[in-house]
């Protein structure tokens, strides 16, 4: 079959909402886009363990500690599913990790902000996981089968995490003045970075158009961002807290909240590596990987020895 014919079959499947599977023919650019996006997503899960992991040792009660530990462990699990999805496209986990450590592959910029107080753990759960979920719910219907299926599993756990995050903030909002201040301060610091999670405006987004045609992406950055603002602007009332945006206002005409302009200079600055924790996050990942090298080598060497012994045993039995 010619490439044109293969491409036609591929596009027909996309049109008819038939999932593309690992063994199907796909355009190189589709494969590349997916590897970039899924591995970036996997790295975000893994790097995302760091700001939250920062508070495991200091969680204020045993129950909160157990919940946080289980949550961060879930992120590791999500990383695993996603690395596996990348492997179905012919790129190994090791290769994608090497790309992360060299700075070639990106991860969500939100994790380059520091978690300074316990309230940040609540705000991350509520706002960061909340923003991630909107993107992930959309991705449950993405055109590549293994990615869509990984997302279905991940979404179930993420919505649980978001509720847990909100629950931390509810407890703070009902607490002492110090706790309420801590809560508002965390919301103030995390609000704008979480809006940035949806990426540049549609008009500026370089990867979006082709991804939409291939149904990898099914809603635009600005559509998702608006949905998020509408959701959070209501939920924040339950906490008796405010969002740090003087332009936030319900608009009767559009049936949406209007909101102020994002500081795009900050967004691009963090993307370029100049966020408050970019260096620390990558250093921590590289350190874990480098210091784990001898452990991985030992496991490989032992597995090889075991295999050789089993084969020898088998030969003996046959003889």
């Amino acid at each position: 079959m010619s490439v044109q014919e293969l491409e036609k079959i591929f596009l027909d499947k996309i049109d008819q909402e038939i999932k593309i599977e690992p063994k199907d023919w796909m355009p190189d650019a589709y494969r590349k886009t997916l590897v970039r996006q899924i591995s970036q997503h996997a790295h975000s899960e893994i790097v995302g363990m760091l700001p939250e992991g920062n508070w495991i040792g200091r969680a204020p009660s045993l129950k909160r500690k157990a919940i946080l530990l289980a949550k961060v462990q879930d992120e590791a699990g999500h990383g695993l599913y996603l690395y596996s999805a990348t492997e179905t496209l012919g790129t190994t986990r090791e290769q994608t990790i090497v790309d992360l450590h060299s700075g070639k592959a990106k991860y969500s910029s939100i994790f380059n902000y520091p978690t300074l107080t316990w309230a940040d753990i609540g705000a991350v759960g509520w706002l960061v996981d909340g923003a991630a979920i909107l993107n992930q719910v959309m991705l449950c219907r993405t055109s590549y089968g293994p990615y869509a299926r990984a997302m279905v599993r991940i979404c179930k756990e993420e919505s649980f995490h978001q509720r847990q995050g909100f629950d931390i903030l509810v407890a703070l909002s009902k607490g002492t003045q110090e706790q309420r201040d801590m809560c508002q301060d965390a919301i103030n610091r995390w609000w704008w970075p979480s809006l940035m999670m949806f990426g540049p405006h549609d008009s500026e987004s370089t990867n979006s158009e082709q991804s939409t045609k291939w149904k990898i992406k099914r809603m635009s950055n600005d559509e998702l961002r608006q949905k998020f603002v509408d959701m959070i602007a209501e939920q924040v009332k339950v906490l008796n807290m405010t969002l740090p945006d003087p332009h936030l206002k319900w608009n009767e005409q559009t049936n949406h909240y209007d909101f102020g302009e994002i500081n795009w200079a900050e967004f691009w600055n963090v993307v370029k590596g100049n966020g408050p924790c970019n260096k620390q996050r990558l250093d921590a990942r590289r350190k874990a990987w480098d210091e784990g090298a001898w452990v991985r080598e030992a496991a490989t060497a032992y597995a090889a020895k075991r295999k050789a012994r089993a084969e020898k045993q088998e030969e003996k039995q046959i003889a």
Binding site: Q73, A76, Y83
Partner: peptide, 11 residues
Amino acid sequence: CGHGPVLEQDI
């Protein structure tokens, strides 16, 4: 947590 030598063992 978050610093293990390999993801499976971190878990």
